[in-house]
């Protein structure tokens, strides 16, 4: 599914994402940034692993940087045509930021499932994740957190615990109500400053 379509679907369930926009030129990106650091990504259905393919640039700050990044991303993405370039607001960086993954998949026997794990690019390496069949209850969501080895890292206080619980319930509802959504990755969801932002998302129909 197109990124912006997925973005709208996810946002419609009250799941917090970061504002983003397709930019057709460096100037458009500069305008979007409005003086703030941004994230720039080249999106193509042919490039499944954006960061591995060098198609993600974080903390792009200033007009010159944005122009340089726009042209380097365009060059790298050329072999994945057709592609689009996405500009996103940057989540404030802090040493306390934690990346988690929240996802969805469909099982032939049990149907839709929701996943929570320690996220980022090492998710397959650590394999610290929990899974439940949708729709989930609040108790299910809480047990998904408790089951992780990293439970105290990702839910370090009651507030972050209830925030993640709420996020899981929303994702479960979105998956249950949208029959056509077969796979979902919110990866990473960055936990920062008492809130969270799903900074990258993918939906497979």
């Amino acid at each position: 599914m197109d990124y912006m379509d997925a973005y709208r679907l996810i946002s419609g369930y009250g799941i917090r994402t970061v504002p983003g926009k397709y930019v057709g030129s460096a100037d458009e990106a500069v305008k979007f940034a409005a003086g703030n650091p941004i994230v720039m990504k080249a999106l193509s259905p042919k490039a499944l692993h954006k960061s591995k393919s060098g198609l993600v640039a974080l903390n792009v700050d200033g007009m010159d940087e944005i122009r340089k990044t726009f042209s380097s991303l365009s060059r790298k993405a050329d072999r994945y045509r057709p592609y689009k370039i996405l500009a996103q607001q940057m989540v404030p960086f802090s040493g306390d930021n934690i990346e988690i993954i929240v996802g969805g998949n469909e099982d032939a026997q049990f149907g839709k499932m929701v996943l929570l794990g320690l996220g980022g690019i090492y998710v397959e390496a650590f394999r610290d994740f929990s899974l439940r069949i949708c729709p989930i209850t609040r108790t299910d969501a809480e047990s998904m957190i408790d089951e992780l080895k990293s439970s105290h890292v990702i839910a370090k206080d009651d507030r972050s615990r209830s925030m993640i619980t709420d996020l899981l319930l929303r994702v479960s509802r979105m998956l249950t109500e949208n029959k056509g959504v077969r796979e979902l990755d919110l990866n990473p969801v960055i936990l920062h400053g008492g809130t969270y932002s799903a900074v990258d998302l993918r939906i497979v129909r």
Binding site: G103, G104, F129, D185
Partner: peptide
């Protein structure tokens, strides 16, 4: 296609 699907197979279900 997704990280989730690669982690969440039939046994995990």
């Amino acid at each position: 296609h997704s990280h989730t699907a690669s982690l969440a197979g039939s046994y995990q279900a």
